[in-house]
């Protein structure tokens, strides 16, 4: 049995992961609402895998330009690579010569291939990178190497994301609900889409160290998708998503510093915990509250039956 002082030591030892956990949970959950409601799940998957290519590029660049061989530059280069890939996906599929999902699939595979190739090339060059690269850690996440710098970067990113969403809350809702209509009403949809893609890329880069490229998509999708089953108000979905994200990642971080989970990468624990929340909510919705999401509530059916009430059209 662990004594209290042992426990405090454990907490002190893992103070950075314990701080980073809720932060990335929060920012992933915020972005997740838009990813889910705008049906950008596949895009987020593509962008997260592009991060693998970004790491490869960062590591190789760091060999030739030694000033780039530190954690901050690695994050910056990876983030830029993710954003570049995201914009390329959008650009290639814009004129509909290639469908969007095909473009995402193509760039996803290509950037993972680039990453793997560049990392292998780096191995053949003399001397290892200052920060070691472990493919398993890249794919499934790693806590041990979370540093003060990572915590600070994650905090700044979260702050940026929160500020952007708070400032452009209504604009984001509008382009999510109906992009064409928003454009007609004078909303700069191109700029907002770019900001959204940038936020997705940034968040992915910040979270990758903890949960890994393969697992990050879950963090970008599950909180939003689960919250969408819980509320029919945008604000409600938003709050539910943040709660799910923060609780899920915090619990996962706490679990992953104690045996027997401490030997595993944290990514699977985060994903499985979030998945458990999703499964419980889905089952609750499916078996105990079988009302489909679009069926009129009893109140509305009543309104429709009122004589003189307008619209006998079918609801969906």
């Amino acid at each position: 049995m662990m004594s209290f002082s042992d426990f405090l030591y454990l907490v002190h030892l893992n103070r950075y992961p314990l701080m980073v956990g809720p932060i990335i949970g929060c920012m992933c959950a915020i972005v997740s609402v838009f990813v889910v409601l705008r049906r950008m799940s596949l895009i987020s998957e593509g962008v997260s895998h592009a991060g693998f290519g970004g790491i490869g590029l960062a590591v190789l660049l760091a060999y030739f330009f030694t000033p780039l061989d530190n954690a901050v530059w690695r994050q910056v280069i990876t983030g830029a690579f993710c954003m570049g890939t995201a914009f390329l996906m959008g650009y290639v599929s814009r004129k509909k010569k290639v469908s969007e999902d095909s473009a995402i699939g193509i760039f996803l595979a290509a950037s993972v291939a680039v990453g793997q190739l560049l990392l292998k090339i780096r191995v053949t060059l003399p001397g290892g990178p200052k920060i070691p690269v472990d493919t398993e850690h890249l794919l499934f996440g790693d806590f041990v190497n979370v540093t003060a710098t990572d915590t600070l970067l994650a905090g700044i990113t979260a702050l940026l994301v929160i500020c952007a969403v708070a400032a452009l809350y209504h604009q984001f809702i509008y382009i999510t609900l109906d992009e064409e209509m928003a454009r007609v009403n004078g909303v700069n949809t191109r700029l907002l889409n770019a900001i959204l893609l940038m936020m997705i890329s940034l968040v992915i880069v910040m979270c990758v160290k903890m949960v890994g490229f393969l697992m990050i998509t879950a963090l970008m999708i599950i909180p939003g998708a689960t919250a969408n089953m819980l509320s029919r108000r945008f604000g409600g979905v938003f709050i539910a998503s943040i709660l799910i994200g923060v609780l899920g990642t915090s619990a996962a971080v706490c679990l992953s510093i104690v045996p027997p989970f401490s030997r595993s990468s944290p990514g699977p624990i985060v994903v499985l915990l979030l998945f458990a929340i999703f499964a419980i909510v889905w089952a609750y919705r499916h078996f105990f509250k079988p009302r489909p999401i679009n069926e009129p509530s009893p109140l509305q059916s009543q309104v429709e039956k009122e004589p003189g009430a307008f619209g006998h059209g079918h609801s969906h």
């Binding site: 029919r232 108000r233 679009n294 009129p296 109140l299 509305q300 307008f310 619209g311 059209g313 609801s315």
Partner: peptide, 11 residues
């Protein structure tokens, strides 16, 4: 204050 998804076509 109803969610829009539950309304009929005309509404």
């Amino acid at each position: 204050d109803q969610p829009i998804g539950g309304l009929s076509g005309g509404q």
